Simulated assay, not measured.
Amino acid sequence: MYGIGGMTDKEGKFCLHCNELLKDHKAGKYFEIETIVSNETLSQVCERLDMSTEGIKLLNRMLKSPDAFERMFDTSEGEFQELLAEENQTRLQNYLQDPELIMEMGTKIPVIRLIEMDRCSGEAACCSFHAFIRTTNMIIGCLQEKAAQMRKVATVNFQLQEQGVNVQFTEKSHSRKLNGEQCDRFVKKASVVINTLYSDPAYADDRERWIGVMEEWDLLSTMLKCQELDKLENLDFQIGLTLPVRLRTLMLNIIDLVGDPSLMQSFYFHSLLVGHIGQQFYDRLVQYGIPLGLLNINILEDLRICKSNQR
């Protein structure tokens, strides 16, 4: 797999699984515009693109910010303005209220890019354990940035120590490299950090959203890492079937809360957002009855060592 994906990719592409260019990824071009060209309801569009109406509603709000156009992929300024036009927005609001309405041709809808896996998709399953660690470290880094901006690093560290979480924020901006156990403890106790950072009533909405994000990440990442089918069923098999949509909505919420695309540059965040990991989880679960967690790199490495020792 050497020379495929990342900074050393021979074709200037970022991902192991798709043709995303490194330059587009660095620019944070996560979104695109879907134009309705056939008789479809919003529910059908959501099903086709692994999105939720909640996600479309949130994205539509996000795209009204001044720098929103910079995050659009392969979209002209003219098309972007058509999306924001009053007539289009009125129609879109109607469809968000009743997703079963047949939409008018030409309606513009903002969506998260759903990128097909057409590079090494069969050979390289995403390691859900590493996805959990890297994404959690990214979230910790974002919250650390916020703590530094608000001059609450010392207060956050005290609260973490009180809860027995071996994680310390710093004033300096840098990527975190916590291990799986540290990440797991942090996710379980993340509300302590969030309540400390957003204690002001003026931040009540952000506080509730962050708590919801961390609770959802705790649930979905647990399902991603799960290695036994019966345990997955105990967690809630039906949630597993909706996991691709929920992951994309969750990553969108993180983008909105963090606001700075430069803090979200990892391969795993990309894979969660554009649908790679959700698709791999769903396909292996539905087609083969295999939890994605069973294909984690550390599990496969342990099996390889065991087989070597048996020879």
Results as ranks from 00 to 15, higher is better:
P66W: 10
G212E: 00
Q238A: 09
T196A: 14
L22W: 07
E47A: 14
R48N: 14
T75L: 07
L197P: 06
F169K: 04
N296R: 12
R113M: 10
L272I: 05
W210L: 06
S38T: 14
K10Y: 10
E79Q: 06
R284F: 03
P291E: 09
I102L: 13
R48H: 12
L63A: 02
R71G: 00
E20A: 11
A68K: 08
D205F: 12
S221K: 06
S128I: 10
D50K: 02
E162Y: 11
K29R: 15
N137M: 02
G106Y: 03
P244K: 01
S173W: 11
L292I: 14
K189E: 11
Y268E: 14
I112L: 15
K26M: 11
H174G: 09
L232V: 09
Y30W: 15
A125S: 13
S43A: 12
I194S: 09
S76M: 03
G278L: 09
T196M: 01
A154D: 13
D236G: 04
L257S: 00
G289M: 08
Q81R: 15
M251E: 02
I299Y: 01
R151W: 00
R209A: 08
L114K: 15
C183Q: 07
M138G: 07
E116M: 11
G293W: 10
M264R: 12
L250K: 00
E162N: 12
P261E: 04
A148R: 03
I140E: 00
D118L: 06
L49T: 08
T35L: 05
E40N: 04
E123I: 13
M214W: 07
D50C: 08
A85D: 15
S65M: 04
C120R: 09
E301W: 05
M1A: 11
R246I: 02
E77Y: 11
D260N: 15
F132W: 03
G3R: 00
I255N: 07
E32K: 14
H130C: 01
G278A: 10
L292V: 10
L96E: 02
D256N: 15
C226W: 07
C306L: 10
T35C: 04
Q182M: 12
N296K: 08
H174C: 09
C306S: 06
L59N: 04
K307C: 04
Q287N: 12
L294F: 06
L232G: 07
L224F: 10
I194H: 08
S173A: 14
A190I: 05
K225Q: 15
V192E: 07
R284C: 05
A148N: 03
N60F: 05
I33P: 06
C126E: 10
L247K: 00
Q238K: 10
N253L: 02
R48T: 14
L160G: 08
L92W: 02
N94V: 02
Y30D: 11
T53Q: 11
E47D: 15
I115P: 01
C126W: 09
Q93T: 13
T249I: 06
L92V: 00
N94C: 01
D50I: 02
I194Q: 09
Q144L: 01
E20Q: 14
C127F: 00
T155H: 02
G122I: 00
T249E: 15
S121E: 13
P66K: 12
M72D: 04
D184M: 06
M103H: 12
E162C: 07
D206F: 10
E116V: 09
E104Q: 14
F169W: 08
T222Y: 04
C126R: 08
A131P: 01
L229Q: 05
